[in-house]
Simulated scan of single mutants.
Amino acid sequence: MSWSVSTQPLSHDVSSDGAEWSTGICDCCQDMKQCCFAFWCCPCFACKTTREFGQCLCLPLLDICSCAHPATMSVRLAIRQRYGIRGSLCCDCVHSTFCTACVWCQISTEMKKRTLPTVFSDVFSLG
């Protein structure tokens, strides 16, 4: 008998009425460790979060060249689409421009809350 570890796939179903963010944009202080990391070193936190999302580690560094933060806005939009969260491109733009660290905390928290736990299962070899 051998053990294997598998992760349940995430559901990408978008509900017809749309879901809400699990935390508000200003709820970043609920996790003080995460909040401090995002506040004091937002580029590092953004790169770590983007990597966990499955995108290029350096993607958030594009935000340094612009005041509109296109990478932050695109990751926020992608998270909304993945989890069927209601919102608008206008809100994504405003939040990404004026509340960058809070947006990255919200994205990170959403990914943590929506990720299914790892499941251990038995694998029996036949033969």
Rank of each mutant, 00 (worst) to 15 (best):
14 V>I: 07
14 V>A: 06
14 V>K: 08
15 S>T: 12
15 S>F: 09
16 S>V: 13
16 S>W: 11
16 S>Q: 14
17 D>R: 04
17 D>L: 07
19 A>C: 02
24 G>E: 11
26 C>N: 13
27 D>E: 15
28 C>R: 10
29 C>Q: 15
29 C>S: 15
30 Q>D: 14
31 D>N: 15
31 D>E: 13
32 M>W: 11
34 Q>A: 03
35 C>K: 04
38 A>G: 02
39 F>Q: 04
39 F>L: 10
40 W>G: 13
40 W>I: 15
42 C>A: 09
43 P>S: 11
44 C>R: 02
44 C>E: 01
45 F>R: 03
46 A>E: 10
46 A>G: 09
47 C>P: 05
47 C>F: 01
52 E>C: 04
52 E>V: 01
53 F>L: 09
53 F>P: 00
53 F>D: 07
54 G>D: 06
56 C>T: 05
58 C>Q: 07
61 L>N: 03
62 L>Y: 08
63 D>K: 00
64 I>E: 05
65 C>N: 03
67 C>G: 11
67 C>N: 12
68 A>Y: 04
68 A>E: 06
71 A>N: 04
72 T>D: 00
73 M>F: 01
74 S>D: 05
74 S>N: 09
74 S>Y: 04
76 R>Q: 12
76 R>N: 08
80 R>T: 09
80 R>C: 14
80 R>H: 14
81 Q>V: 05
82 R>M: 10
82 R>F: 04
83 Y>L: 07
83 Y>A: 08
83 Y>C: 06
